[in-house]
C-alpha cells in the first residue's frame, strides 16, 4: 500500500479533498513583510527568500509589488497564491483604467477588495495562504493595512506579518513616530530586518525596500545588510554548554 492509499484509508475526508484542489498547507513561502507610515507616505520591506519547507528554494522572489498608481502590496506566505492575487489585482486595475473616467481605486479600495477575496476563499475552505500588507497614498491620505488568509484585517501606523509581528513590532512601537523622514524610516526598517535576519531562520540577507508617495511607487534594487557574526559566543557556540547533551 503506498502512502496515498494509506492516507485515504486513514481519513475518509481525504478522498473528497483529493478530488478537488485546495490549499491544505503551503509549499513555497516567503517570510515577514514590514510596512510603516512615514512623513510622505508608506515604506515597506521584505526579503527575497522563498522557502520550500526548511529548504531555501528561491533567492530572488519579489514580494513587494505596485498595484495601480496609488497602492503597494507586500506578501508573506505561499508565493504561488501571491502571484495568483497579483493576477486578480492586475485585472482589477486594468478594468478600472479602462473606464478612463478620472476615477481610480485607491489603497483603501484595493485593501477592501482583497479582504473580501481572502474572506470569500476562507468561506469556501480554500484559502489563499498569505498575509498581505497593503500601503498607499491617495489625495494626501496615507493608508496602511493588512489582511490574513482567513480575512482578519486592520489598519495601523506600522504593520508586520509573521515573525515580524513578534520581533519587529516591539521595535516599531518604541521607535516609530508620525514625522519619520525617508532616511530615518529606511533606517528603522533596516534595523527590524536585521533583527529578523539574525533570529528568523527562513530570512535571507537580500532584501528590497519599497516607497510609495503621492508621486508613485519606487522599489529598491535588492541589497544586503551589514551583519556582524564575530561575537565570541558565536565562535564556539557549544562553549559553556558542555555536557548538556
Amino acid at each position: 500500500m503506498n502512502s496515498i492509499d494509506a492516507t485515504i484509508a486513514e481519513k475518509g475526508l481525504m478522498s473528497s479533498e483529493m478530488g478537488s484542489e485546495r490549499t491544505l498547507y503551503p509549499y513555497v513561502t516567503g517570510t515577514s513583510v514590514i510596512g510603516i507610515k512615514y512623513k510622505d507616505g508608506i515604506l515597506m520591506a521584505a526579503d527575497m527568500g522563498g522557502s520550500y519547507g526548511s529548504t531555501l528554494r528561491y533567492k530572488s522572489v519579489e514580494r513587494l509589488k505596485p498595484i495601480g498608481k496609488h497602492s503597494l502590496i507586500g506578501a508573506s506566505g505561499e508565493i504561488s497564491d501571491f502571484q495568483e492575487i497579483l493576477r486578480y489585482l492586475d485585472e482589477l486595475i486594468l478594468y478600472d483604467n479602462m473606464w478612463d473616467d478620472g476615477n481610480s481605486l485607491g489603497p483603501k479600495e484595493v485593501h477592501n477588495y482583497l479582504t473580501r477575496v481572502m474572506y470569500n476563499r476562507r468561506n469556501k475552505f480554500n484559502p489563499l495562504w498569505n498575509s498581505l500588507v497593503l500601503g498607499g497614498v491617495k489625495n494626501g491620505q496615507k493608508y496602511l493595512g493588512t489582511v490574513s488568509m482567513i480575512g482578519v484585517h486592520f489598519e495601523d501606523n506600522h504593520i508586520a506579518t509573521g515573525f515580524g509581528n513578534h520581533l519587529a513590532r516591539p521595535i516599531l512601537r518604541k521607535e516609530w513616530h508620525e514625522n519619520l523622514s525617508f532616511e530615518d524610516g529606511v533606517k528603522l526598517l533596516e534595523k527590524c530586518m536585521r533583527v529578523l535576519l539574525y533570529r528568523d531562520r527562513s530570512a535571507v540577507n537580500k532584501l528590497q525596500i519599497a516607497k510609495i508617495t503621492e508621486e508613485g511607487v519606487t522599489i529598491s534594487q535588492p541589497y544586503s545588510l551589514k551583519t556582524f557574526w564575530g561575537f565570541s559566543a558565536f565562535q564556539n557556540p557549544t562553549k559553556g554548554a558542555e555536557g548538556s547533551w
Binding site: W99, D101, N103, L105, K108, E109, N112, Y113
Partner: peptide
Amino acid sequence: SFTYESPLPVGR
C-alpha cells in the same frame, strides 16, 4: 460599497 467601502462613480 460592500466590496470597496467607497461610493460607486456616477459615470460607471
